[in-house]
């Protein structure tokens, strides 16, 4: 997956969006995106969530 954007880590609108979201998962998606500047960072959050659930399922 390519880096497709040039996120502005100080984008006030993204901050505002993050505050408007209630889900911790959603908040962590924004944080990961801003930190690593890629869609892969968000996908990794999703994969981590799944791995945690898989461990619990065992």
């Amino acid at each position: 997956m390519e880096k497709t954007h040039f996120p502005d880590s100080s984008d006030p609108l993204l901050d505002e969006l993050e505050k408007a979201l209630e889900s911790d998962f959603h908040k962590s998606c924004i944080e990961a995106y801003l930190a690593k500047a890629s869609a892969m960072a968000i996908a990794q959050i999703a994969i981590d969530v799944l791995a945690k659930a898989a461990n619990e399922a065992k």
């Binding site: 997956m1 497709t4 954007h5 040039f6 996120p7 993204l14 969006l17 998606c29 924004i30 995106y33 890629s38 869609a39 892969m40 960072a41 968000i42 996908a43 999703a46």
Partner: peptide
């Protein structure tokens, strides 16, 4: 771009 990134990540 964030929305696109979430779409891509999905």
């Amino acid at each position: 771009e964030f929305r696109k990134a979430v779409e891509e990540s999905k």
